[in-house]
Amino acid sequence: MAMPKVLKVHGLDLSYFTGKLEGYLRGKQIPYELIEMDTADFKRCGKATGVAQMPQVEWINGQWLSDTTLIIEFLETLKPETSVMPEHATLRFIAQLLEDFGDEWLWRPALYYRWAHAQDARLMSHRLADGMMRDVPLPFFMRRWAILNRQRLHFLWLDGVRKTTAKRIEAHYLETLDALELVLKKQPFLLGQRPTLADYGLYGSMFRHFFCDPTPARMMRTRAPAVHEWVARLWNTTLADYNNAPFAAQWPGELTPLLNIVCEEFLPYMQANEQAIEQGTRKFEFDSKGVQFKIPTQRYRAWRYQRLKTRYQALPYSSQQEINTCFPELGTALSKPVTCPVEARIKGLPITTPTTMTSRTW
């Protein structure tokens, strides 16, 4: 299938998922133009795809790409010679698992640090008022007030952030940072000597939020310098330079603390969300090391979780055994059949994908 000479990527240079996609496109050496959205362009893209989110990619013949996970999967089929997908079935699944973790677990602490801390919130509300809302005919101070309150409502209050949960959300970032540091001070990328989907899956939060926003960036520099270096390295990576480097055949032992977080926190969280949706409830409770969260259900996350289960169950028996030996909780969670598939409800989709889905905005 033909690819445009230059992809038109509609997004923002402070956006979680725009940064993830940009890092991948730079590594893949796929030319692109970042079109900084304003509110009119945001609406135009949403009308074209049926989903109000970013980034969105204009393709050819009026076609569009939506959702970074599916965009990357699609582009991998068009340019497989610089693949980020490990060849070994077990490692490929681990890479996909870590992409889900990066997208769906780190979302909350990333948005928390951006909007709960005064210094970060002042900076980002200024940037969004001057950028995303530049076409809104209101005085600057009113645009800034509106965006600050909108973001805090959606990404703090409505996403379970309370005085009782704030410290635990902060810990979600710090625990992940410490786990990543153990790996990245030993090797350049998460699964070995060449970049994989695992790296790009964690890049959205680690780059545009934790690396760039003042409060978490200060923590990263002092607490996890190897992670800080990895973020810059990945932005400057050309995947073709690694074509002759073999993919790892097994995950490094240093990855165990990170995978423990996945098993003990992320998968139970995703499972609880799926169960609540199957039961028809709009909120669910989740316990994170003794801290109780009450969070709205997300159909998109249920879709991601069900897809993860399907992928695990399709693995060769030897790969399942390899995973279960080290992480029995993972096998227990993902071996349960999908009994009530979550149907997609969004019209925007990559041109290769027959399934629509819900996702988060900004």
Rank of each mutant, 00 (worst) to 15 (best):
E343G: 04
Q313C: 09
I30N: 03
E81T: 12
A249E: 15
P86S: 06
P55W: 04
I261V: 10
R221L: 15
H154T: 11
S359K: 00
D67C: 04
L182P: 01
P216K: 04
A89I: 06
Q321L: 03
L25K: 01
P139L: 15
L349H: 08
W303V: 08
D287Y: 10
Y173M: 14
E73P: 02
R168G: 02
R311Q: 15
L156H: 04
R360M: 12
V183Q: 06
D41T: 15
P328A: 10
A179M: 01
L148N: 13
V183G: 03
D103R: 07
L14F: 14
S205Q: 08
A333C: 14
A240I: 00
R122T: 00
S335A: 10
Q320N: 05
Y173P: 03
Y312M: 12
L148F: 09
L153C: 04
I72G: 04
S66N: 01
T281I: 08
Q250C: 09
C340W: 05
T238G: 12
N236S: 14
R307G: 15
G11K: 09
S66D: 00
R150F: 15
L128S: 05
Q53D: 07
F155A: 09
E22N: 05
P188I: 08
E22P: 01
A179N: 04
L255N: 07
R208E: 15
P350W: 06
S359C: 02
G102C: 12
A302H: 09
L12E: 00
L21H: 08
S335P: 01
G348C: 07
E58H: 03
G253A: 12
L202Q: 11
V84Q: 02
W362R: 07
T339I: 14
L191R: 02
M270T: 05
L255D: 02
S125W: 01
K8H: 05
D130K: 13
R150C: 09
T68E: 08
T361A: 12
A276Q: 07
T238Q: 15
K43L: 12
K167E: 06
T165G: 09
L182A: 14
N243S: 14
P55K: 02
F155K: 10
V231C: 10
T18Y: 07
V262F: 10
A302N: 12
W362H: 05
Y317S: 14
L197S: 07
Q320H: 10
E343T: 02
H228R: 00
R162Q: 11
V6M: 02
T237A: 14
T18I: 03
Q187K: 01
L180Y: 11
W105E: 11
L78V: 04
R307N: 15
W303L: 13
Y112N: 04
G331W: 02
S318N: 12
A116Y: 13
K5V: 06
A224I: 11
N149I: 06
D100N: 11
K163G: 11
L91S: 01
N324G: 03
A276S: 13
A248H: 03
Q279C: 08
E181Q: 10
D130W: 00
S359Q: 05
C340M: 05
W362E: 13
T196F: 07
D135R: 10
